[in-house]
Write a protein that binds this DNA or RNA. Sequence first.
RNA 1: GCGCCUGUAGCUCAACAGGAUAGAGCAACGGACUUCUAAUCCGUAGGUUCGGGGUUCGAGUCCCUGCAGGCGCGCCA
Length: 555
Amino acid sequence: MIDEYLVRCLNQSLKELAAEKGVDPAQLRDVALEVPKIETHGDFATNAAMVSARFFKEPPRKLAEQIISRMPDPEKLVDGIEIAGPGFINFFVKDKAWQNVLKTIVNMAEDYGRSNRGEGKRVQVEFVSANPTGPLHVGHGRGAAVGDVIARALEATGYDVSREYYINDAGRQMEILGHSIFLRYLQLFGREVDFPEDYYQGKYIEDIARELKDTKGDYYLGVEESQAINEMSMFGAGKILDEIRQDLEDFGIKYDCWFSERSLFEKSSVEKTITELQERGYVYENEGARWFRSSEFGDEKDRVVVRSNGALTYFASDLAYHKDKFERGFNMVIDVWGADHHGYVPRIKAGIKALGYDEKKLQIILVQLVNLLRAGQPVAMSTRKGEFVTLREVMDEVGKDAARYIFLTRRSDSHLDFDLELAKERSSDNPVYYVQYAHARICSMFRVAEKNGIEPDFSAGADLNLLELPQEKKIMKILAQFPSVVADCAMFLEPHRLPYYLDDLVSVFHSYYNKNRVISDNEPLMRARFYLVRSIQVVLKNALDILGVDAPEKM
RNA sequence: GCGCCUGUAGCUCAACAGGAUAGAGCAACGGACUUCUAAUCCGUAGGUUCGGGGUUCGAGUCCCUGCAGGCGCGCCA
């Protein structure tokens, strides 16, 4: 692509210059090429001269001149270069370069935007991982959308991605789940029970109890209580997990691995992890408990891994889990967490370091919490109390695509107000339709053409010089950016860049569409414009694919 | 009290790891459908980027500080 080409040329020039002036090339930063906001500032611009001025000990503008004079242009794509302002180098590119973009897109079709930067490296993205003690709610939906799109963007960038869901199916909350079901079960037999406040209050617990009564009758009245609770927690968790799985699938998400916490205990992984830490000298005993010396690795204090009563902490199994991830040989491990877990970042990273792994290979994305509102009024959400708006409800009310878009059109670290009423009311205003509509429009256009006996034949080529309108050029420029937008999305783990890019592209298209006709008697022009709109169609389809949003052919 | 995140147009949010003149959508107002989909388009209006210092060629972005909101600070999970 053009931007990559210019960067290569610039780098070569800088290297040459550095050699001449005796500057260590290692000092030089990578060249940053950007598309200026203002068109008179060129098609591309770089601040390379300003950034490296101090290494060369020369004024930026003077350095810029020398960079330009040494810059190669083997493909003769550059039309003009100017030095502007404090030392920007602005590039103007020949129309031919933009026209080539259209040919590339039409030829590459669904592959346009994909790259092999990841070189097949294995990446694991773990997200949602909600406890199987209740249905997914809106907050989980945000993590789901963000995690999934990060995974999709990485795939498009050439990584070998594995999506994973960590099931907390061991420990105290499982016990509470089982007990909650048990109490509801007893109630179904007319027993008077005291249902504790901090047990799971949701109606789904009663549903599970009723199902057990229907299938097993009074079987559980005759067994040991602890056995009943244990079996009920297994059954309940399985039941709830099935629904979670279904919800996620309907939300467009397929996992490669459902990883059970319980399996860690079955393999004694947790004990082994603690032993390993101990062998490395990072575990000590104090007041009957065993502590991990995490403060030696940047955590604010040490953490308990084995309590004085002998029980392993949640943190201990989390360490074992992360050790397992690295043992599976991933080159990068990405955790998508709710921001309420941010306090755990330093201790997990400490654990990774203590176990001898490269902590930089663990990236933790904190997704800020969703603040749920109903008609402007805050709604408290609590799985325990059974007060929540489920992801399922949201999907039913506003649809999968609109819901995903709401989650994806903001940075992960922005706090999100989600007003269910507003989401319903304004679902037709959702920007997702703006984008989908553009795709449907183009599809419709090709249908009309076909109906009129016009076959959009791309093998014959077209005279793309006829695309001389400013808007046509602008569209070509935006289309050219797509691969780097996808790559940035993946590299910075920031899905929101994609929807904003799409909005840009689509608004120019709609405007263009309203002013100009594609199908017309002017055959050569029509052929050329077919290239343009087909390219838009391809990019929309590919981008929406990465967002996990449908690209409808009709609306 | 300490830590993390946030503060940008009336509202919801962007601003491509410091770039040139801070941009979109919604809401408001005024216009455009006998023509490839009006879920669209064109136009108007809307800003001391929370306050105060600093760093430099250049700050919404980085540092310090104050204020406001969210979250977290257990031998809970």
